[in-house]
């Protein structure tokens, strides 16, 4: 689809694309839009922001690689060209001349193929190592969660939906030893960009204390690990309100979740 005029939304997308900050799926869609739809508005926006993004690279201090990089590159190019030459050259030389050239070219091609395979294997090892570290991290986090959920010292606070979100539910697992809350939310639709949800710790005396600003996933769920606010000892209740993006020092919006110990 081609756009007829620019808008804030299109500018934001072009800007995030140029700087590389679009999530992968959106990046692919936008790149396809630029490549295939021929949208002059978006191409123009993209080129302008691309110049701005490029300035980050152009502002870096100059750095010089080893001369071997260029040598390797040009050898690879010559090897590729060499195989083409052999296909088209007239057979005017003797057998040994061509045999020698052929062996040389084969050796260069073999070297290039070996280098490519080696590079591919190194990349595979890197990817697998990355995946292993990611899984180890997930196991560690799941271990912490399990320990919290099964601890005899854990207190559970159920929060029920209020007002316009009666279907929402949340549960806080309060590990008093480690001073951590695990908050699980379901059925709470995400708020728009200019709003956030804000979790409040409500003490017996005094004003509510902000515990965390958050938003829910597209399916209305959220799972958060929250350090218990300093001085939070005389807990009476916990609540979630909707607030302007970034949250406020004190609650101003309607309660969407509320629960007591």
């Amino acid at each position: 689809m081609k756009h007829h005029e620019s808008s804030n939304e299109l500018q934001e997308k072009a800007m995030l694309y140029a700087i590389g900050a679009l999530p992968e799926e959106e990046r692919r869609d936008y790149a396809r839009h630029l490549e295939e739809d021929g949208c002059a508005v978006c191409i123009s926006e993209n080129l302008e922001f691309q110049n701005a993004a490029q300035s980050l690279a152009m502002g870096l201090p100059s750095n010089t690689p080893s001369g071997a990089v260029k040598e390797r590159l040009m050898a690879q190019v010559r090897a590729e060209a060499g195989t083409n030459v052999f296909r088209v050259a007239p057979p005017s030389r003797n057998f040994w001349y061509w045999a020698e050239k052929l062996v040389l070219a084969a050796a260069v091609v073999l070297l290039a193929i070996t280098a490519t395979i080696n590079s591919g294997l190194r990349r595979d090892v890197g990817t697998l190592t990355s995946r292993l570290v990611e899984l180890e991290d997930r196991v560690r986090r799941d271990g912490v969660t399990l320990a919290t959920l099964t601890s005899p010292e854990v207190r559970v606070v159920n929060l029920a939906g209020q007002g316009v979100t009666p279907q929402a539910r949340a549960r806080i697992f309060w590990n008093e030893t480690d001073r951590v809350w695990l908050l699980y939310v379901t059925g709470l639709p995400p708020v728009p960009q200019d709003r956030d949800y804000q979790l409040w710790f409500v003490p017996q005396r005094g004003n509510p204390q902000s515990a965390r600003v958050f938003n829910t996933n597209a399916d209305g769920s959220a799972m958060l690990e929250i350090p218990v606010p300093a001085g939070a000892t005389d807990f009476m209740a916990a609540a979630v309100t909707t607030e302007p993006a970034g949250g406020l020092p004190q609650p101003s919006g309607a309660f969407v979740l509320l629960g007591a110990d």
């Binding site: 934001e12 800007m15 701005a52 960009q193 956030d196």
Partner: peptide, 15 residues
């Protein structure tokens, strides 16, 4: 930081 705040900062910088 909230996503909106982050987008604002990137937008201001790029502009």
């Amino acid at each position: 930081q909230p996503l909106g705040t982050m987008k604002d900062r990137i937008r201001t910088a790029m502009t």
